[in-house]
Design a protein around this nucleic acid. Structure first.
Length: 746
RNA sequence: GGUCGCAUAGCUCAGUUGGUAGAGCACUACGUUCACAUCGUAGGGGUCACAGGUUCAAGUCCUGUUGCGACCACCA
């Protein structure tokens, strides 16, 4: 007959095998049902699977497997993101380890090195996703820098430009002095830190004393074009309109009055450096001040016309030290005040971001945001949980122009050319650009923000701008599953781009899941050493145990705290399923019967079918409502309390043919229902038990096909209740229990 | 400064239209009698953060307070 189930549950021995046997079903294929589509958020090409990934992909896989079972035509579009700055960083570091400097290479050579690296290491995460059980059609996988994606990106850029929604402008950008590129507002993280507020003497030109300026950035004084006080500040009222001299260079600047100045802060007197501070820039604009830039792209002091000799060409931090020393020795430094303030850092470079006035490419996000807002307000796309709508609205309502140009090499090069006269030509191809601008045009070397291509993901992966059959069939998608951390980076931008180019929302539902933290609730990070490696966990406890745990803890609106212990508990539960199967096999239970055809006579069997029906209804609801925690709990309760604790125990006493057939049929249905959450063990057991249909693409019996057995359910529930009471009062009689059961079992 | 969330057993958390407080882990005791010690059975343990209010009835709804967290903004 069939092989015996091993005594011990050893997931390692069969998981890979089970996966490979079912790979053929991962492609979308023709079915009567509607399509169900999820765009897999593409992990970074540099990525390694972490627990957070496991959660997000596991949830998607549950949905995919569930709807595939239900007969829907399912597409789970996988892919990889080129992750511009992050990848360039990683590759640069590997080069440095080999003693090679990026600066020794041409742009083309360096790009080639990255591509080589991508070909070699970029497939790692997909292999790890397979270990987790992700049932995606991998041969459809897209890379955000594929030729087809590149085509889509160029097309999108050109259209937005010609429609006036992409433009070139000189304005403040966040300048990363380490990578020498502009970054978007979102790529900044603010860090609280201790700093010093220096009070500095600026002498009046007429020799009538001084005014005290407070600043945290004394080195920028050479770019000052005014000193500002509050118009109502009695202390300084008489000084307004006078001229002061900047130390060392003695350039003269006026004292001006502006409401922006806070009398309470610092000395109440503020130096205005329009080129290096957003607010100063605004003040400068109001007062028609000159804008003097004194920093170069690496953060060194430049503009020698204004910067004194002793700090020329020096990095700003060092320049600050030098300036302070000079101030001290010349008795211009009045006091040092310790303060805490937050400073902007680049999320990748971890260096202080300088606001610099630069010419960059921008997207008019304000205009695009209108439709994106409306779509959610009108519930065409809904957030689950709903509260994230507010986050989304807040950001879109206050949206700023999106700086999309990056001065790095790894990314989609902007399809713009400059003529010798400095005119800009934006076209999809070089040929077209040359046709317009002549042969001597020069292409912009900037590349696009990685999120620009990501924003096109839901339709670009399906063949857009071509109107392909895939695009027609699979767009818009059913649900986007992701964490709240990329609502701005990605979700909002996909909404904007989809609505602009496709005139449709990219997805109906947005399911926002929790963040995974360690047992103590701390963010997992390498430096803290509290990172749980999902690969190790799967190795030790099996992919199903990891999946089950993550589902079990994914309560909406609360972060997931897990440790190894939790995975172990899930593994123990799966062992319980395993042993239930062993028992049924041991009892020679048949799995050939379909539960629909059973029509049992006994209350016991009718009862278990009624419970199964309820379980099924619950599960359907849980999936619909994205309650994966309930889903896992329901699986556990049904198997443990209904099936093992009572039904199997009863089966030991009344092992009639009817009861055994019911056991086989019910267990089989259970395996099917649990399959989306724990695909490996369920499929494996099915194979051994000789259940001929594969679970992956066949749903079990529909809830409506199961009869109602409410009376039997009540009868047996009452019996169970009585047993509990008798047991707790101590006078349990096994014989009377058996008698009762036999009555129910006839 | 703005927004949102959380506070229930020693720990991690459920509690889905208000109706006698739940699970798992941990703990205690018992148990290896046809799956399962990666287990089973039983047990102890909670003023549901605090203060008001609505209600016949509040963990659940409303107001306020405290503590914790996240995000956004500002940041001389």
């Amino acid at each position: 007959m069939f092989e015996l189930i091993d005594k011990t549950y050893n997931p390692k021995s069969f998981e890979r095998d089970v996966y490979e046997k079912t790979v053929q079903f991962f492609e979308p294929y023709e079915k009567a049902g509607d399509v169900f589509v999820i765009m897999m958020p593409p992990p970074n090409v540099t990525g390694k699977l972490h627990v957070g990934h496991s959660l997000t992909y596991m949830i998607q896989d549950i949905l995919i497997r569930y709807y595939r079972q239900k007969g829907r035509k399912v597409l789970w579009q996988p892919g990889i993101d080129h992750a511009g700055i992050a990848t360039q960083m990683v590759v640069e570091r590997t080069l440095e380890e080999k003693g090679i400097k990026k600066s020794d290479m041409s742009r083309e050579e360096f790009i080639n090195v990255i591509w080589e690296w991508k070909e070699k290491s970029g497939g790692l995460i997909a292999e790890q996703q397979k270990l987790l059980g992700c049932s995606a059609p991998w041969n459809r996988s897209r890379f955000t820098m594929d030729e087809s994606m590149n085509r889509a990106v160029r097309h999108a850029f050109v259209r937005l430009y010609k429609d006036g929604l992409i433009y070139r402008d000189k304005r403040f950008v966040n300048w990363d002095t380490k990578f020498k590129t502009a970054i978007s507002d979102l790529e900044i993280v603010n860090k609280e830190e201790k700093g010093i507020l220096w009070h500095i003497k600026y002498n009046f030109s007429d020799g009538s004393g001084h005014i005290t300026v407070a600043t945290t950035r004394p080195e920028t004084m050479f770019g000052d074009t005014a000193v500002a006080v509050h118009p109502n500040d009695e202390r300084y009222k008489n000084f307004i309109g006078k001229m002061v001299k900047i130390p060392f260079t003695n350039r003269e600047i006026p004292v001006i009055a502006d409401e922006y100045v806070d009398m309470e802060k610092g000395s109440g007197c503020l130096k205005i450096t329009p080129a290096h501070d957003h607010n100063d820039f605004m003040v400068g604009k109001r007062h028609n001040l000159e804008i003097i830039n004194i920093l170069d792209e690496d953060g060194h002091m430049e503009n020698f016309e204004y910067v004194p000799e002793f700090i020329r060409g020096i990095y700003l931090k060092k320049a600050r030290k030098e300036v302070l020393e000079r101030l001290k020795s010349e008795n211009l430094l009045i006091k040092e005040e310790e303060i805490t303030h937050s400073m902007p850092y680049g999320d990748r470079s971890n260096t202080v971001i300088e606001p610099l006035l630069k010419e960059q490419w921008f997207v008019d996000a304000k205009t695009l945001s209108v439709e994106a807002l409306r779509a959610v307000q009108n519930k065409i796309t809904r957030f689950i949980p709903e509260k994230w709508e507010n986050t989304y609205y807040d950001w879109l309502n206050n949206i700023q122009p999106w700086c999309i140009s990056r001065q790095i090499v790894w990314g989609h090069q902007i399809p713009a050319w400059f003529t010798e006269r400095g005119d800009i030509i934006v076209e999809e191809t070089e040929e077209e650009a040359k046709r317009i601008g002549g042969p001597n045009i020069r292409r912009d070397t900037d590349v696009l923000d990685t999120w620009f291509s990501s924003a096109l993901w839901p339709f670009a992966t399906l063949g857009w701008p071509e109107n392909t059959p895939d695009l027609k069939e699979f767009f818009p998608t059913s649900v986007l599953v992701t964490g709240f951390d990329i609502i701005f980076f990605w979700i909002a931008r996909m909404m904007m781009m989809s609505l602009y180019f496709m005139r449709e929302v990219p997805f109906r539902d947005i399911y926002i899941h929790a963040l995974v933290r360690d047992e103590k609730g701390q963010k997992m990070s390498k430096s803290k050493g509290n990172v749980l490696d999902p690969i190790e966990l799967m190795e030790e406890y099996g992919a199903d145990a990891l999946r089950f745990t993550l589902a079990f803890f994914s309560v909406p609106g609360r972060d997931i705290k897990i440790g190894k212990e939790h995975i172990k508990i899930s593994r123990n539960f799966i062992t319980k399923i395993w042993n239930a199967a062993r028992f049924l096999q041991h009892k020679n239970v048949s799995f050939e019967h379909n539960i629909k055809d059973l029509s049992p006579k006994s209350h016991l069997n009718k009862w278990v079918i009624a419970k199964l029906k309820k379980f099924q209804e619950e599960v359907d609801l849980n999936i619909k409502e994205y309650r994966f925690d309930y889903l896992a709990k329901n699986i556990q309760i049904f198997l443990r309390e209904t099936f093992c604790d009572f039904f199997i125990e009863a089966l030991k006493i009344v092992d009639t043919e009817e009861t055994k057939n019911t056991a086989g049929a019910v267990f089989q249905e259970f395996l099917r229902i649990a399959h989306p959450v724990i695909p490996f063990v369920t499929d494996h057991l099915a194979q051994i038990l000789g259940i001929t249909d594969t679970f992956i693409n066949k749903s079990g019996v529909h809830v409506n096909e199961l009869p109602n057995h409410e009376e039997s359910e009540r009868t047996v529930d009452q019996l169970i209740e009585r047993i509990h009471v008798e047991r707790s009062s101590g006078d349990i009689s096994l014989e009377s229990f058996s008698e009762e059961l036999k009555k129910l079992g006839c």
